[in-house]
């Protein structure tokens, strides 16, 4: 780090400590052989990992979270990609309005969207929790799907598609041979981003959960409230490991900073 800017460097170090050190403490606590969150840990053991992996509420919730994340990401892309094409290639009137509409779920607090779906669909219309969770998560991911794939499309040259059409390719053939390859990195980025966003979500799922469909983050929150033992640290460490795998995949493909930070380096 640059030593000629001492104040900036000191603030930067404090910033990194606040961002990263709590994560290190979670990992350290996960390997304790004791039964409290005392620090330093009392000894080394893997018992809390065993406990976490055989704790039925967590494994069940993990399955629910994975299903929900995969299904909502798939749905958001399935309806989002065609919408992106229409917005950026369709020359439709009111393009700005439609685009704003698709990005609007980003403005309203997720907790408020959760309350809205809970009140209207679960209480008033008695819809089951699972479809409402799926609907809510899909609406939440739609802005990401439209924005990320839209960025891939906006950065490409429309004359490629016009050339294909001009040379006699059908609209479908143009889509599959020209547009889809242009979109592919955007779709991949949106899928990773969508999966992570849905999997980690708390505020939207909070009111929409039921005993049968409870996601992992919510189950973990409930657990911390009742008991205060290192099993939650072990579960967190496993989530951290899985997240790191996703980060590596992102870096090896489209680029980590590009997908998750929206930064083109």
């Amino acid at each position: 780090m640059n030593t000629r800017k001492p104040v900036a460097a000191a603030l930067a170090i404090v910033g990194y400590i606040v961002m990263l050190v709590p994560i290190l403490f979670v990992v350290a606590t996960a390997f304790t052989s004791g039964s409290t969150l005392r620090f330093p840990p009392e000894g080394l053991s893997f018992q809390w990992f065993d406990a976490a992996l055989s704790y039925a509420p967590f494994t069940g919730a993990l399955l629910t979270s994975l299903q929900l994340a995969v299904a909502s990401t798939f749905l958001a892309l399935a309806v989002g990609v065609p919408a992106t094409l229409a917005i950026y290639r369709g020359a439709l009137p009111g393009k700005g309005l439609v685009e704003g509409l698709f990005l609007s779920p980003l403005i309203i607090p997720e907790l408020v969207v959760g309350l809205a779906l809970y009140q209207q669909l679960i209480i008033t219309f008695r819809v089951d929790n699972w479809p409402v969770l799926l609907l809510g998560h899909t609406a939440l991911l739609l802005p990401y799907a439209v924005r990320v794939t839209g960025a891939a499309l906006a950065g490409s040259d429309v004359s490629l598609e016009e050339a294909a059409r001009g040379l006699g390719a059908s609209p479908l053939r143009t889509f599959f041979t020209i547009t889809l390859p242009i979109l592919r990195p955007g779709i991949f980025s949106a899928a990773l981003l969508g999966f992570i966003t849905s999997f980690n979500n708390v505020p939207l799922s909070l009111l929409l959960q039921s005993r049968e469909s409870r996601t992992l983050p919510i189950t973990m929150l409930d657990y911390v409230q009742q008991s205060y033992d290192p099993m939650i640290a072990a579960t967190s460490t496993l989530i951290l490991a899985a997240t790191m795998v996703i980060a590596v995949i992102a870096e090896r493909t489209v680029g980590f900073a590009k997908i998750f930070g929206g930064i083109n380096r």
Binding site: N200, P217, I239, T243, I246, A247
Partner: peptide, 9 residues
Amino acid sequence: IFPLLLSNV
């Protein structure tokens, strides 16, 4: 950037 990927919980 990495912390953004990690669950808030």
